[in-house]
């Protein structure tokens, strides 16, 4: 049942579960190219989010790769590249 693409909706859900948001609408709209810093997520929030993505999508677990992402677009691309490589 492993999903083989990682979407913005997945990221938003996992960010909310792992690091929370200040209001229900905080992650609405086009956040793809906003930086995580602008969105209010620090390195620890990104670490927590990366761990949760790895867990859910059964990635090999290279934390260091995922937490280099500066924006949701970069993170989504990194996750999808790891998913493609693991098929």
């Amino acid at each position: 049942m492993t999903q083989n693409t990682f979407t913005l909706a997945d990221l938003k859900r996992i960010l909310l579960e792992g690091a929370g948001a200040d209001s229900g609408s905080a992650l609405e709209g086009d956040i793809t190219d906003a930086t995580f810093e602008e969105l209010g997520y620090d390195s620890l929030a990104l670490l927590e989010t990366s761990t949760r993505i790895e867990r859910e999508f059964h990635l090999a677990g290279d934390d260091d790769a995922l937490i280099t992402a500066k924006t949701p677009r970069e993170l989504i691309e990194l996750v999808n590249a790891q998913l493609a490589a693991s098929v």
Partner: peptide, 8 residues
């Protein structure tokens, strides 16, 4: 408290 503080 803001939602962001709750998971931590």
């Amino acid at each position: 408290l803001p939602g962001r503080l709750l998971p931590q």
